[in-house]
Design a protein around this nucleic acid. Structure first.
Lengths: 221, 221
DNA sequence: GCGCTAATGTACGAACCAGTACGTTAGCTA
DNA sequence: TAGCTAACGTACTGGTTCGTACATTAGCGC
């Protein structure tokens, strides 16, 4: 919003492939998250862009590939966030709590991403399967969890012998459900799981749950 | 499949409003769960029914109302299952574990229901909001949780002071995630959360988690 | 400053799909 | 068994939506 009449094209150049592509991806992310894959309209995405529908097909090939590109970028964002995890200086209990809270925060801050994942699951993860990039994206968080778990188990602090993938599932499930099922849960039980006033409450609850699970005294079995 | 050439109309009657409606609901449930709301095709539902598209509009009014009817029936099924909960004879710890396991089992047995709930959340729970029936459906499980929690907290077995709705959310999140996100999780982490061979593993994990949370020694604060 | 190509805009088509107008019949009732 | 109505079928339509053929121009290299 620097100029008065022409806030468009802030970069100066009229033709800019990179910016056009990025803008399409931004709008497409919103539109797919808003309405689901089949509910999303290519014309609507184009209309909310500085460019035209023609460009969507020029750069991405089609609706299907556009959705795949949207997913690739969304997963890229979470991978980057995970790479900034700095918990190695903490003791295992504090480290796991911190990791859980960061996962919690990321879900809270990216509801569109959660919706995209829900949508992709409705479609059997076929776009992930079709994407070379997503096949080998991995998860930095998983490596961090592995290290903390090993440390905690060796020191005897953690009694549970879960592996990193299952613990990641446990943490994610709580964070994901809270955002993804917010609407049906709210409608049926009259409680908004994403109410800002309850944010700390649920964040603490998640941490307590994970720590309790990892440090509980297990019956011999 | 009792007769050879005419396995149709097993009830005998050619015209049967109740059966036609039920059949439409059955097929519609599958189709909506398969493709999402906008991906589902009314023509496809009709084609897989003994009747025609005309009847869908005759009985339900439209695609939107049909989906609402599908949701109403699906939620009705889970409510009925919850009404058969019999855990009052157990001690609080065993009762909670049993409840968690029944929730786990119901999610496992009704993947279509899980998909419908995901779809409804993509659309902001607008069909639940539009349904009178679903507004006052409640949840028998919630009452059971309330009773167990009170007993456990009064006896000092449970240290956590969660309320029933939050505990229900915690249990549901794990069960829901495992089924709903099966595809993306499998594609990204190479682990099938619904692998039958791992069923007991995750069922136990859920119970351990909930019990650990409820019985953990909390730091004063 | 000239030409070449990546980048972009316009206008249209063909298929699809929710919903309906109109016509027919099964089966209950009296 | 006649008549009435709920239940059902056929065929169509109007709008929508993904995708594309064709025309145009910006901006870089030389």
């Amino acid at each position: 919003m620097t100029s008065v009449e022409e806030p468009e094209r802030p970069g100066g150049r009229v033709r800019d492939a990179a910016r056009t592509k990025a803008e399409i991806l931004d709008v497409a992310t919103q539109e797919f998250a808003r309405a689901g894959y089949d509910g999303a309209r290519v014309d609507e995405i184009a209309a909310r862009t500085r460019t035209t529908k023609r460009m969507i097909y020029y750069y991405f090939g089609g609706k299907e590939q556009l959705f795949t590109a949207v997913l690739e970028r969304a997963y890229g964002v979470i991978r980057e966030a995970e790479q900034e995890l700095e918990v190695d200086h903490l003791d295992p209990v504090a480290a796991i709590r911190r990791l859980a809270e960061l996962t919690f925060d990321h879900h809270e801050r990216h509801p569109d991403f959660i919706r995209l994942v829900s949508i992709e699951n409705i479609h059997g993860a076929e776009h992930i399967a079709a994407s070379e990039k997503l096949g080998r994206i991995g998860s930095p968080a998983l490596e961090v969890i592995r290290r903390i778990l090993t440390a905690g188990q060796e020191s005897g602090l953690f009694t549970a012998d879960v592996d990193a993938v299952d613990l990641h599932a446990m943490i994610s499930s709580f964070c994901f459900f809270r955002v993804a099922n917010r609407h049906t849960f709210g409608a049926l039980f009259g409680r908004d799981l994403v109410d800002p006033a309850q944010r700390e409450h649920y964040r603490t609850m998640l941490g307590d749950m994970v720590i309790a699970y990892l440090t509980a005294e297990r019956a011999a079995g």
